[in-house]
Design a protein around this nucleic acid. Structure first.
Lengths: 133, 133, 133, 133
DNA sequence: GTGGTCTAGACCACA
DNA sequence: GTGGTCTAGACCACG
């Protein structure tokens, strides 16, 4: 049973949820490089979703170089995820900068912004027992 | 000419862009309480967009109590935006906390996170010539 | 009636033939920037092909930034094709270099390679009455 | 260890890659007439590929008269490759002429086309230390 | 067994 | 009207 999850009631397209889910699992290291993906039919059966929808998601994942396909064998997590990691790291920092700038522009005091950030980091640290400085 | 802006090529629906745009303008004080909105037809003409789309956006804005409509007179920004401001302020801080925590969890050093935030604030300050402490 | 052509008996996938066809028409200037594409349903009817197949082709064209889509309006040739042109020019020269190297490696005399090239250019010139030096 | 090479990630079928690889090796004289091919099982083991795939490739090679099979003895490069050489030589020159003409038609200056060709020949020469005039 | 393509037909949101 | 998503079911090539 795979770790890929989907919410049929969400208005974000199923195939996109799958793409995001796999990308996330790969980034978080829950799916390792060169690990085999569930087959199109298997995942379709598990999620009770049409195989075409899975296929579409896998196609998009391949285009984004998050997985690769071997003829007749199946799909696999990409061997090298560094590009993906870098992109993701940039996206995170970009989102953070956006949030901060927008909060500031909406008149939230700098002190409150900074306090929010440091508290968020503290609780994150708490949840994982791992510090990075 | 109104301040409302729309990107036709974006995949987010035009009516939603209008809703977001007006909400943002109201929150940032660029549209004042009880100020009159551009008429549906005027805005449609200005943005080169189907009037039905504007109508839909105004309907949604009214539903969210960001604007109110006076029969035969037009649409107006809500008189009391405090609820909206509070909600929005919370949402901003929530997003900020989320992104900060996620960045931290992905191993980005605290120093880099804090630097990103303070730089974002600095550039925002630069762009608007308005300080809030 | 559009200029897009497809060969149902070819083993190259229909959707890919459409992608190639449109790319080619755009490169050759037969479809101009911001020109509207035939609608998915219209092209499907004209080519006697399932609309889903057209949709897939248009999706790929959009990913390659050869066309863009406006919500509710249709698909259009990209406004700026310079990137496409550059890529294509590089691909042409790369293929040419490959051909020449392979011919040489297979023992074909340099003189014959050069003669083949200059004759090919001469006949191309003949066909189009346009010289470029 | 044979000279036959295969890229498992390529979308061109493995059996076809093998056919192309052997054809190329034969044409370039790296596999001599009547030379014995690696056995199906040996090649399968070396390339880490399903023996059925090798079998299919050998079948196709035999059909194209590039190899012949002796019952119980194995497969061998064809004794007479002149026909193959001629065909291939023509194909190479044809592709070269085509690409040169197409480059010219797309407005690439003749000087650049010729430079590309001569440089490709030079690098090919460099790589193989063998001149043919 | 695997992925990939295609058809037929439906439904939805947007303009 | 437009594009976009999804399902159901079929067929094919590859390994």
């Amino acid at each position: 049973m795979s770790l890929i999850r989907v919410d049929l009631r969400s208005r974000v397209p199923i195939f996109e949820q799958i793409v995001n889910s796999v990308r996330d699992l790969a980034i978080r290291g829950l799916m390792k490089p060169d690990e085999q993906m569930p087959s199109v039919r298997a995942l379709a059966a598990e999620l009770a979703i049409n195989p075409n929808t899975i296929q579409k998601a896998y196609g998009e994942l391949e285009r984004q170089k998050i997985i690769y396909s071997l003829a007749g064998r199946g799909n696999f997590i990409a061997s090298d995820l560094t590009g993906l990691m870098d992109t993701h790291r940039q996206a995170l920092l970009h989102a953070l900068a956006n949030d901060a700038a927008q909060a500031y522009r909406h008149g939230i005091p700098v002190a409150e912004i900074e306090k929010t950030v440091s508290e968020a980091i503290r609780s994150a640290n708490f949840g994982e027992e791992k510090g990075n400085d």
